[in-house]
Design a protein around this nucleic acid. Sequence first.
DNA 1: GAATTTACGTCAGCCTTGTTGACTTTCCAA
DNA 2: TTGGAAAGTCAACAAGGCTGACGTAAATTC
Lengths: 164, 164
Amino acid sequence: MADAPGGENLLYLTDEQLRKGIEAMFFAYRGFTADPDRILEGMNYGRAHHRAIHFIHRSPGTTVSNLLSILGVTKQSLNRVLRTLIDDGLVRSEKGKTDARERHLFLTEKGVALERELSDAQRARMRAAYRAAGPAAVAGFRQVLEAMMDPEMRRQYNRLKEGG
Amino acid sequence: MADAPGGENLLYLTDEQLRKGIEAMFFAYRGFTADPDRILEGMNYGRAHHRAIHFIHRSPGTTVSNLLSILGVTKQSLNRVLRTLIDDGLVRSEKGKTDARERHLFLTEKGVALERELSDAQRARMRAAYRAAGPAAVAGFRQVLEAMMDPEMRRQYNRLKEGG
DNA sequence: GAATTTACGTCAGCCTTGTTGACTTTCCAA
DNA sequence: TTGGAAAGTCAACAAGGCTGACGTAAATTC
């Protein structure tokens, strides 16, 4: 075993190890989205709707611009999705009280029901994976993912974490 | 601390922990693809081209149908991407010797160069994340991702692992 | 009070990347 | 020799990104 000058074993940083990690991310993300995708297909919604629903559920009353910065898309793109969700009665949009330019977003009962269905499916897979891997692996999993984020995204992620 | 009947602490399986994992996957995947996306933007290619290039590099001489099953898209979708890569001289397609129906795919020098550029960027981020998290965390990371895959994808992933 | 900025919505058009369906060509194997 | 598999192609369509331009209402600043 070749150790680094500092004494730390760096075999886990070889290109081969990194490539395995890259491929693991690719295949795992497919699994990660597979169940919600299956539920949404055929009901006129897609992954974009799922993301909006998730974060509105997560932060009820969030504004459009806040959602924009979390999702990292243009307002035109988000608006198209939000429009259908509002028209279909899954999301409610409320004019702000202190700042009437803002729109605060909430899930309706119907929206909550779909969110539940989607997140139940996604959590079930996550739970199975967590259970199979064990608590120590889960801690490592989260550490690596967090380190992989762009700083701005890490801020968003941590802001959500605190809030929850 | 509430332990499970079996004596195992299951706090890491709470809905809250699972939700954090879900959000971590979402934000981390954005970071994961950000650097290659940046390189590809403006040069007529997208993530689909990156994926094709990656797996052709990974398994030189792979057939179209093998690539299809790895990427999980339709042949029409893959063909469009492959067409532009072949036309632009990044990929070479060779009629099979033992089975002439098959097309074996290889990267040209130009293709290898782009693959290198893309994977260098992606590996750099991965390496930074791995280094920040440490070897134990990396092992856990890979364990959880592997457990999250669909069985068929896990087979693909492991086949690639052995090969490499 | 007027001008500017901010938050949001919307129209129009474009691109990538996914889909289905229909069809042809090539070639292996029964 | 014929059926079926592998590959490629054409056409059409949808989701969901993007840019640019424009409008409106409300807040802020000058």
